[in-house]
Design a protein around this nucleic acid. Structure first.
Length: 163
DNA sequence: GCCAACGTTGGC
DNA sequence: GCCAACGTTGGC
């Protein structure tokens, strides 16, 4: 069987809650609390070990891509859904039939300078079709095309290189 | 803090 | 199964 090709993603986090610097400090983390079915499906079904992720700071000044992480564990049930004390508790979820899934991320790089949403929008030609620059796009886990991922790395002057 | 966009819920 | 009401996201 051919090895599955690496996929590319963008994941949003509010830096006040958990920033790319927090991820650098911790090394890796689990992406809990996603309660959107589309985002859930990506994490459960499509994200795989070794995928690359643009780490996006939302609700920030300015918002934008702050770094890169990699998927270090593919989809598994989000434990917070079973925890009655958690704000992410879901009474309809059971161990046998979990409703929410997450992945683990490992830190790869924090950009020297954030690639702001404004810069992404200004690069509309190179980034045409990229979901994050679309109006009203709220999805917190999004697929990213390889060429777009590459372009963002270029704009960031990232150390990490895509072959 | 405002509010547009959009996902989810629930009454019918 | 429709759709109004409601809740959340996230840029500004």
């Amino acid at each position: 069987m051919a090895k599955a090709e690496r996929k590319y993603w963008l994941m949003k986090s509010e830096p006040d809650v958990y920033s790319v610097e927090d991820l650098r400090r911790d090394g890796s983390t689990y992406w809990d609390g996603v309660r959107n079915y589309q985002a859930r499906n990506f994490m459960r079904d499509e994200m795989q070990l070794g995928d690359w992720v643009l780490y996006y700071h939302s609700n920030a000044t300015p918002p934008g891509v702050a770094g890169i992480a990699t998927v270090s564990k593919s989809g598994y049930p989000d434990p917070t859904q079973f925890d009655a004390k958690s704000k992410y508790f879901d009474p309809k979820a059971t161990q046998e039939k979990p409703r929410w899934f997450l992945v683990d991320l490992t830190f790869k790089e924090a950009f020297k300078e954030l690639v702001s949403l404004e810069r992404l929008k200004n690069a509309a030609e190179e980034l045409e079709g990229m979901l994050v620059i679309k109006k009203g796009q709220r999805l917190s886990v999004q697929p990213v095309e390889k060429v777009h991922f590459k372009q963002v790395l270029k704009m960031a002057g990232a150390k990490a290189k895509l072959r």
